[in-house]
Design a protein around this nucleic acid. Structure first.
Lengths: 188, 188
DNA sequence: TGGTGTTGAGAACGTACGTTCTCGATCGCT
DNA sequence: AGCGATCGAGAACGTACGTTCTCAACACCA
């Protein structure tokens, strides 16, 4: 038996596979990337890929899940180093601004996946909804600490900024959304 | 020569084709709908389809263009029957609420097309940007009449409501966005 | 050392798509 | 009436994809 596939190796393969798939899917769109391209980029044999994920749909869902953990983890890490509750909410938009300005930014992976696969894949749709719900709840927690009833507007401003920055390719919606949020957070 | 193809017939064919393609694309996604399905639904021979549009990409762009005219036309018709400038801006969100509640609502056709085709089709990307720019400018005109500097926040609230209603399948974001816009429009 | 079971590399398979081509049918014109 | 151009219906073509299968190579154990 060559390379007996330890548990550790499985973990490494899984990481390499998700890394390659996530990069390609985000860059080119999910439907535009075939399994052969994922194989080439990951360096894994097709057989091993299909042992890790029984079908492409499962790989896609796993990519979205892992990205959700990392994306919201980074957001939380940035936001929660701010002490003042109102400033913390505004820090969400600062983090978005940094994200929008990253090279290769192509919008929200989940919104894009929704556009591509929502009508044809229940599993992808569920993952997209799960991410958006979690993002909403994160914001709700931070806004709640301000004692102001502006959870929904802050969330909608964030979503609007994400989709607008993606389509225009311009990161300034983050600034506009931040200013609007600051207005809503200014207790009269 | 059978059915000599008058200019009038061309116009009718074009309408039937765009009707069928728009419905199918919006319902199932663009990539999931083949030309054969468009042919069946439109009742037009493939030959005539390809004489009207040299390639699927051209058909997709034409569908988005015509939908843009109709979508923004309806929005404007609803909004501009309101006299008071501030109420007129709020009427945008009332119209969105009605749209979200329509049966078969599956979000913004342009955002969905962006997710599907932005990386692979320059023409579609340009059409999506054109629509979003026009929508932004429409809102800018209505907000400008209020004399308040809230064009960007109102626009971002609208985009956020559209994308959130699409993914959650719940029309209430329109109400939340309306309330936030009303706050921003309340001169202190 | 020989057998066994697993691996990697990629060929193979079935399907589906976008686009083009075939061909018999049809109608206006002389 | 007969010619010729053009049409409709769908077969055909080339390509690409997701998934499965083939098979030689190999490492471990008896």
């Amino acid at each position: 038996m060559p390379a007996p596939i330890t548990e550790e190796q499985t973990r490494l393969d899984r990481t390499a596979l998700l890394d390659a798939a996530e990069r390609l899917y985000y860059e080119k769109g999910i439907q535009a990337v075939g399994m052969d391209e994922v194989r080439t980029a990951s360096g894994l044999p097709l057989k091993r890929i299909y042992r890790l994920f029984a079908a492409k749909e499962d790989l896609v869902v796993a990519v979205l899940q892992r990205r959700d953990e990392r994306w919201r983890g980074r957001l939380a890490a940035h936001v929660e180093q701010v002490g003042d509750p109102r400033e913390r909410v505004l820090a969400v938009f600062d983090w978005l601004a940094g994200w929008f300005a990253e090279p290769g930014f192509r919008g929200c992976a989940w919104i894009n996946a929704f556009g591509e696969l929502a009508p044809s894949s229940e599993a992808v749709l569920a993952e997209v909804r799960s991410h958006k719900q979690a993002f909403h709840d994160q914001i709700a927690g931070w806004v709640h600490a301000t004692g102001l009833p502006v959870v929904e507007p802050v969330h909608l401003l964030a979503e609007g900024a994400i989709v607008t920055a993606a389509i225009t390719g311009d990161p300034t919606p983050a600034t506009h959304a931040r200013a609007a949020a600051a207005t809503l957070l200014a207790t009269p």
